[in-house]
Design a protein around this nucleic acid. Structure first.
Lengths: 139, 139
DNA sequence: CCGGATCCTTGCAGATACTG
DNA sequence: CAGTATCTGCAAGGATCCGG
């Protein structure tokens, strides 16, 4: 009972905290928002224009979650019309590097992924049976 | 005509290929599957047990997508009961490093995220107006 | 029995309209 | 301008059945 369940060292456990944290940033928009805020502060509407394809609702949702997780800071200026500015917190800035690593990977392997998809879609229904199947019979 | 629109250099464009590739791996389960296959080949049922919380359907779906993207190789042994083994392709192995970077970040910043969440949930409805608002009036 | 296809329910995401 | 509220459609995801 000395090792509490709450911080399972095994990321494959559902109750593992690092897994839960990982899932906070493993969604469609969070990496893009982080990347968009790299240069500094941005207004809501600017983010909305910058990140092509995101809806107002999704941006709000994503920013709220990120704010809750301490990744972005949200500052509201009580003027009319309202001005709301978002920026990365120091914690959020530490995510820039990991996110960039992912982005660079994506860029570097565009071709391979595209090629793999084409190949897969072509062979389509071909089963690709293993010719070494006989080896496994003795299981 | 050599530089087609399909490869927009700006990741903020929806038609940017690197963004589309990025979204292929930015989901709940793909990073975990990659991480689970680090050590080599695993059977479907083993993955299912190892990755706590994933459903059979989601695992199938995730593995199919990863196979299509060239990240994993799927080998079917036509025996009864069926044996299906999955392993990372060379391309998939190049993702191990980026995924690990993310996972390490998550582990390193557990506390900060948890603390930020607690703080956020406590102040809850407090608006946190900016006291520097007057500066902005002149916008 | 294992892997996965099929149904069916539920929650998520988009569109629109409205408020401060 | 920066959200919130409501409705609606679709797809994620769980439970169940099926083929081999």
């Amino acid at each position: 009972m000395e090792t509490k369940q709450q911080t399972s060292p095994d990321i494959f456990q559902a109750n593992c905290l690092s897994r839960q944290v990982l899932q906070l940033i493993a969604d469609q928009w969070t990496p893009l928002v982080i990347y968009a805020l790299e240069d500094g502060t941005m207004r809501f509407s600017h983010l909305l224009k910058r990140i092509d394809g995101i809806s107002k609702k999704m941006l709000t949702q994503t920013l709220r979650a990120m704010e809750r997780n301490g990744l972005v800071q949200r500052v509201v200026y009580p003027v009319v019309p309202p001005v709301v500015e978002y920026s990365l917190t120091p914690l959020g800035q530490t995510l820039l590097e990991p996110v960039k690593v992912l982005q660079i990977w994506a860029y570097d392997h565009l071709q391979e992924v595209a090629h793999a998809q084409t190949t897969y879609d072509q062979r389509d229904q071909r089963p690709l049976q293993a010719e070494t199947a006989s080896l496994v019979q003795q299981r």
